[in-house]
Design a binder for these strands. Structure first.
Length: 269
DNA sequence: ACTATTTCCTGGATGC
DNA sequence: TGCATCCAGGAAATAG
């Protein structure tokens, strides 16, 4: 399940591999569900366009396209959802089940979008603007202000993409453990000191995860098919009943707003 | 304006 | 072995 570090890893890999290439033709699957823009619009926008760069914004992958007319959409946006993958491969490579889009590149390779669970989304847009703030760029003061007066659990607030873009279930749990805050605490109940610590630990955990290429659980791999290694550093996520890496207390699992949440009852207050 | 709940979707794990 | 059921979760839609 790609969150900020995984999407960052994928976007960096794609930038190295396809920046400068030209999209010669576009094939879109018959199922329209993954498309936010119309199939015709996506096809028209991508065909014959040069890919200038590939980067991450929140959990979205942004392909900057060379635009001839200033009023045309000039970005291709991909959200990988839960199981989405972007693969660069040779045209001879067998088409994977659940392939929803194939872009033929001038270099002779293909860029394929595969997504079994179909939670991913494709769109073209003029200029993409993320809903929330970038966790790695938000200032401590702005971070603290985001949670002022919010009654929702801090875990839910961290997952709210309109506040911060890019945090998912894994890194919300991991950041809360490192900050010593229980996931069910109301966001507004956190002290200034706790929020400052949360901001610092969130930045720390995201940067370390990016350094290790993300967390490979389920079927996540980067654009080279390589797995990440941050799952080895998980302190609470997916570790129900196992000893806390800090104090040996068994990790608890609870459900908050339908999401599994893991924490150490001793380290987190 | 917020917050909570439901819905979408498939494959892997589990239970009988 | 096979079949049914449950579960994972990002974000949009819906309800309160």
């Amino acid at each position: 399940m790609p969150e900020l570090p995984e999407v960052e890893t994928i976007a960096r890999g794609l930038a190295i591999r396809v920046a400068g290439d030209v999209i010669e033709s576009v094939w879109l699957g018959s199922k329209p569900e993954p498309l936010k823009s119309s199939a015709a619009e996506i096809e028209a926008t991508l065909t014959s366009k040069k890919i200038l760069n590939v980067r991450r914004s929140g959990k979205h992958i942004v392909f900057d396209l060379e635009s001839s007319a200033a009023d045309n959409p000039a970005q291709w946006i991909v959200h990988l959802g839960m199981t989405g993958r972007l693969l660069v491969c040779s045209p001879q490579t067998e088409l994977a089940k659940h392939t929803h889009a194939v872009l033929r590149l001038a270099s002779g390779r293909e860029l394929r979008f595969v997504d079994p669970r179909r939670f991913g989304r494709l769109a073209v847009i003029k200029v993409f603007s993320p809903a929330g703030m970038e966790p790695l760029q938000v200032s401590p003061a702005d971070f603290v202000a985001l949670f002022r007066g919010r009654k929702t659990p801090i875990k839910s607030a961290l997952l709210n993409q309109k506040l911060l873009s890019g945090i998912g279930n894994i890194y919300a749990d991991e950041a809360l453990h490192r900050a010593g805050v229980r996931p069910r605490r109301r966001a507004s109940s956190l002290t200034h000191h706790e929020l400052m610590r949360l901001h610092k630990e969130l930045n720390r955990v995201l940067k370390e995860a990016i350094r290790l290429g993300g967390s490979s659980i389920s079927d996540y791999v980067d654009s080279d098919g390589e797995e990440g290694f941050f799952q080895l550093k998980h302190r609470v996520y997916g570790r129900e009943g196992e000893p806390c890496r800090v104090c040996k207390t068994p990790i608890k699992r609870i459900v908050i707003a339908g999401r599994s949440s893991h924490y150490c009852p001793k380290c987190q207050k």
